[in-house]
Simulated assay, not measured.
Amino acid sequence: MPDSLMARSLTLRYDQRTIVDGLDLMLPEGRITVVLGANACGKSTLLRGLARLLTPAAGRVLLGGRDVRDIGPKALARRIGFLPQAATAPGGVTVAELVARGRYPHQRLLQQWSKADAEAVAAAMRATGVEVLRDRVLDELSGGQRQRAWIAMLLAQQTPVMLLDEPTTYLDIAHQLEVLELCRRLNREEARTVVLVLHDLDQACRYADHLVVMREGRVLASGAPAEIMTTELVAEAFGVDALVQPHPVTGTPMIVPIAPVTAPAEVDA
């Protein structure tokens, strides 16, 4: 499994604050994994650790059985692509220039731009619907347009493993579904391993082959959505009483929130 991605006893910290604590995780190769959990449970930190943007305080991240710290930066960037929540670019960058940056890991010292680079950039812009924006400056775009441009850059990188931290942020529902359908198509047609952090539980259950539900820096449950998504899990992970039932169209779990979980009232002795 050359592109299998896993964490072993992974601990990640910011300064002295532990965010991910002794986590073990195996991401199925060639499948779509969605990471879920309440705010501040460690989802984004986990993705940054998997992408080698954070150095583990303990444990390891393995790609194809090899510690990612032993893989050169450019070689790793040809295998793992990462889109953070709040990506930033220098002022004045156009959409076409941003997407072209996704080709950096594939360029050689004596061949800075190739036909393959141009084709990859064009295909990525077509797939995300930003062709008509190619000459627009990124700062002039709406939040949704900018998000699609960043996703196009990630697609142009053409990595077998893609990590996307809340890629539907700023998008209206139509564009949310377009992004998720695009991820599914890349997975099904090109066998890319896709890892998404999402907040919408119904979308997560619809698009994930594999769910990872986190709480306080640890994995609370993992597996196929239909196998692990229960009323009890929703209550424990999100603090919400909910009805979990099959979606009438997709058949995937549908979560109907009812009320916040309330602690039982204390009784005086």
Rank of each mutant, 00 (worst) to 15 (best):
P2K: 13
S4W: 06
A7S: 10
R8G: 02
D15K: 12
Q16F: 06
R17L: 10
R17C: 05
I19D: 01
V20Q: 02
D21M: 03
G22C: 13
D24M: 04
L25D: 01
L27H: 01
G30K: 12
V34Q: 07
V35A: 04
L36Y: 03
G37M: 05
G37Q: 03
C41R: 00
G42T: 03
K43H: 08
S44W: 03
L50P: 00
A51S: 13
A51Q: 00
L53I: 07
T55D: 12
A58M: 11
R60E: 14
L63R: 03
G64Y: 01
P73M: 05
I80Q: 00
G81M: 03
G81R: 02
L83P: 02
P84L: 00
Q85M: 09
Q85P: 03
T88L: 06
T88Q: 14
T94W: 07
T94A: 09
L98M: 07
R103M: 04
R103Y: 05
R103A: 01
P105G: 05
L110D: 12
L110S: 12
Q111L: 06
E119S: 14
E119P: 02
V121T: 09
A123L: 10
R126N: 14
A127V: 04
G129Q: 09
V130P: 01
V132A: 15
V132H: 14
L133A: 10
L133R: 07
D135H: 15
R136I: 11
L138D: 01
R146Y: 06
R148W: 06
R148S: 07
A149R: 07
W150T: 02
A152Y: 06
L154H: 00
T159Q: 04
P160M: 06
P160I: 07
P160F: 02
V161Q: 00
E166A: 11
T169M: 13
Y170T: 11
A174T: 15
Q176A: 09
Q176P: 08
L177M: 11
R185D: 15
R185G: 08
L186R: 11
L186E: 15
R188F: 08
E190A: 13
T193R: 05
V195G: 01
V195R: 00
D202L: 11
D202P: 08
Q203F: 12
A204W: 04
R206M: 15
R206Q: 13
Y207T: 13
L211A: 06
M214V: 05
R215W: 00
G217H: 04
R218P: 04
R218I: 08
L220P: 05
A224R: 15
A226E: 14
A226T: 15
E227R: 15
M229Q: 04
L233D: 04
V234R: 01
V234W: 03
V234I: 15
V234D: 00
E236M: 08
E236G: 04
F238H: 02
D241P: 01
Q245S: 13
Q245V: 13
T250E: 11
V256Q: 09
A259P: 00
P260W: 07
T262P: 00
D268I: 12
